[in-house]
């Protein structure tokens, strides 16, 4: 400890402290932003599913959406939103919402796959709506990533960023990152337009095109970034920040060494 307290006056002490602080915040940030994945299989629903779903719904969702999913002042009607919407909202942990806010956040799932299916079955029974896509719809082996890139850049990149990293919307809302999101959930999001996202129905982006978009996103997701560290794929801001922090510190380190007297 004594040695340490003596060295605190060393000219490099501030620098060392800064580097340590940067590493610490970077590390914490990396830990804090690890995403969790969710996956579920689609099935057809039995009457029992619907019944179970209704029970789950009434005990977990009715506070906001009403006993018959007719909607209240604090939550929209779910009649006609379809199984796809439920599978997305509940399957990604967005619903049930923790609290009212600008938009529902992704968080650990509250229900397992079976319960999610039951909820979806119940809501689907209330009115016709988009169904959960089956595995064939989202099989990237059949997709065309070049076409997907075109559609993604024209329809999605303005909110979700060209590399699918997400971006800001008005007044605290945001478009989330698409990295690490399952194929099915991407498909469902396009189909149902969760939160403030516009709906991209099959007339706008056909099912084949949706699969192409997913293929492109999975291409970005599966492949490493060729250039090295991606810096979050956020573009010039993170690059500028990099050169002004790490770049500058390294350069200063060398200049200090270079101009100091050898012992």
């Amino acid at each position: 400890m004594k040695a340490l307290s003596q060295k605190r006056r060393h000219p490099m002490a501030a620098l060392a402290l800064l580097v340590m602080a940067l590493l610490l915040t970077g590390g914490l940030y990396a830990v804090a932003t690890t995403t969790n994945e969710a996956k579920a299989e689609t099935t057809t629903y039995s009457a029992q599913d619907i019944e179970e779903g209704q029970k789950l719904f009434q005990s977990n969702c009715s506070t906001c959406h009403g006993m018959k999913a007719q909607g209240t002042s604090s939550g929209p009607s779910l009649i006609g939103v379809g199984a796809s919407s439920v599978d997305f909202q509940v399957g990604t942990g967005r619903m049930p919402m923790q609290m009212q806010g600008p938009q529902a956040q992704v968080k650990p799932k509250q229900f397992n796959e079976e319960q999610t299916d039951q909820l979806a079955a119940y809501v689907a029974s209330l009115g016709a709506g988009p169904t959960v896509p089956d595995a064939k719809d989202v099989d990237i082996a059949d997709g065309n990533s070049a076409n997907g890139a075109k559609i993604f850049l024209a329809n999605c990149a303005m909110c979700h960023n060209a590399a699918g990293q997400g971006g800001a919307l008005t007044r605290g809302k945001y478009a989330p990152s698409l990295m690490g999101v399952s194929e099915k959930h991407i498909y469902e999001a396009m189909q149902t337009g969760p939160q403030n996202m516009p709906v991209f129905n099959d007339a706008n982006i056909t099912p084949d095109e949706k699969r192409d978009v997913i293929t492109y996103l999975k291409t970005l997701d599966n492949n490493t970034t060729v250039g090295g560290f991606s810096l979050g794929s956020l573009g010039p801001v993170s690059e500028g920040l990099f050169i002004w922090t790490i770049g500058l510190v390294v350069v200063i380190g060398f200049t200090v060494w270079l101009t100091s007297r050898a012992a």
């Binding site: 997709g143 990533s145 970005l220």
Partner: peptide
């Protein structure tokens, strides 16, 4: 080809090459 949806090996190879060149 680079950035193939399924075969991600070439992209990783290019990244490695770029890293080692640098």
């Amino acid at each position: 080809p680079l950035y193939d949806a399924v075969n991600t090996e070439p992209t990783a190879q290019l990244r490695l090459q770029n890293l080692l060149l640098g």
